[in-house]
């Protein structure tokens, strides 16, 4: 089992995504919640940075948070999966430990 990393800040405001990307092992999972969901939308200045990591890590977005901010799963970078709260719970249960990059 691998580690789940949770990011909740917009990549455009704070450096938590960078910290998380640099400090997570390949094979780990990264979940965007709250304001961080905007980081996973395609065609932004940071999309390429995330795309470069897609082959080694699993990326997820909490869809209810994404929808609240006016986006849908169709707006996501290809390869990033949307999950609902039940899926969020599964991610926490299925990974060995959780680090929230606050």
């Amino acid at each position: 089992m691998a580690m789940l990393h949770i990011v909740n800040k917009s990549v455009f405001e704070r450096g938590t995504l960078d910290s998380c990307l640099k400090s997570s092992l390949s094979g780990s999972s990264i979940l965007f919640i709250e304001d961080a969901v905007v980081s996973a939308v395609n065609n932004t200045a940071v999309s390429d940075k995330i795309k470069a990591e897609l082959s080694s890590k699993n990326f997820y977005v909490l869809t209810p948070d994404l929808n609240a901010r006016g986006f849908t799963d169709a707006d996501l970078i290809e390869g990033i999966k949307g999950v609902d709260y039940a899926g969020f719970v599964d991610l926490v249960a299925d990974n060995s430990n959780v680090q929230s990059w606050l």
């Binding site: 691998a2 580690m3 640099k22 400090s23 997570s24 092992l25 780990s28 060995s96 430990n97 959780v98 680090q99 929230s100 990059w101 606050l102």
Partner: peptide
């Protein structure tokens, strides 16, 4: 190093962050 710390973090049972 960042890489070494990532390994240590991976081995934890409980991570409390703030």
């Amino acid at each position: 190093s960042r890489e070494e710390l990532a390994e240590v973090m991976d081995q934890q049972d409980v991570l409390i962050s703030s």
